[in-house]
Design a protein around this nucleic acid. Structure first.
Lengths: 135, 135
DNA sequence: TGAATATTTACAAAAAATTGGTATTATTAT
DNA sequence: ATAATAATACCAATTTTTTGTAAATATTCA
């Protein structure tokens, strides 16, 4: 199990036990909503409050330690920052999967068409995962 | 100016004056947040309530008359349903632009890599629009 | 290692966002 | 036009998120 103390400090965040646990939860589950995170955190810190969750999620976002993933029709989930990647969501079971796809073609197409200077791409595929297709 | 009475009815929505005005606002502005929509609606219906806005947005979403667009770091905006397209957001001025790009390559890549059956793609480019690059 | 300081936490409360209940009014189909 | 149905405004309730603060904790630096 990873120790995120240094990673947190590199993002100018104090390494508190609560934050370490948030990092562990994100690492373990990959993507997690505020509600789920609160439930998980309660198991380790039985007096933790939602306000603490929100404050930490928000400051972690500001400092780019984590990223928000906006899923269609769902509440946002959060993930540890890593290399750029896209997401797939199963409309049946809700599973979220990471995927790395080369987006230079679409990025260039968008840039030349609109003259935007593009520096970030949020891409979410929705559909059915392999398991849910066969059920 | 378009009359959306029939379009609403085709989506099994009664064509009330409030709904027609929402449709007009979405058509005129392209993308609108709940707050902005409420402000706009207040000009025509000085006793309209936010609850009415929410109820209509929700039922219009359910009936696919409109679509939600989730913008990074921003509140959702809504748009009239139309052909599939992607979005560009300017991080400076907030402008949201539609763009049609062929996504069959990335869609195929994602499908073959993950064995998902993909039926929807949400793609948002963030960056700077042409105007804001030169400021 | 320990004291000083700066930040974080839990808790309470407030604020903001969204949803629910109902009498009245408007829309639709006949 | 009328009856049946659904939407609206209004108000209240709920849910979600943020804020303020004293106490507790982590970090810094000697």
């Amino acid at each position: 199990m990873n120790n995120y103390s240094n990673a947190l400090r590199e993002h100018h965040l104090k390494a508190t036990p609560q934050r370490l646990e948030i990092a562990n939860a994100l690492a373990y589950y990959g993507h997690i909503s505020i509600d789920n995170l609160y439930e998980i955190m309660l198991k380790k810190f039985n007096s933790i409050s939602l306000a603490t969750i929100y404050k930490n999620i928000n400051i972690m976002l500001e400092n780019s330690f984590i990223q928000e993933v906006k899923i269609p029709h769902e509440k946002s989930v959060y993930e540890l920052s890593k290399e750029a990647h896209s997401h797939l969501v199963c409309n049946e079971c809700g599973e979220i999967e990471d995927i790395s796809i080369d987006l230079s073609q679409v990025s260039n197409a968008a840039a030349t068409n609109t003259h935007f200077k593009i520096d970030k791409i949020d891409l979410v595929f929705s559909g059915l995962c392999q398991k849910c297709q066969t059920l």
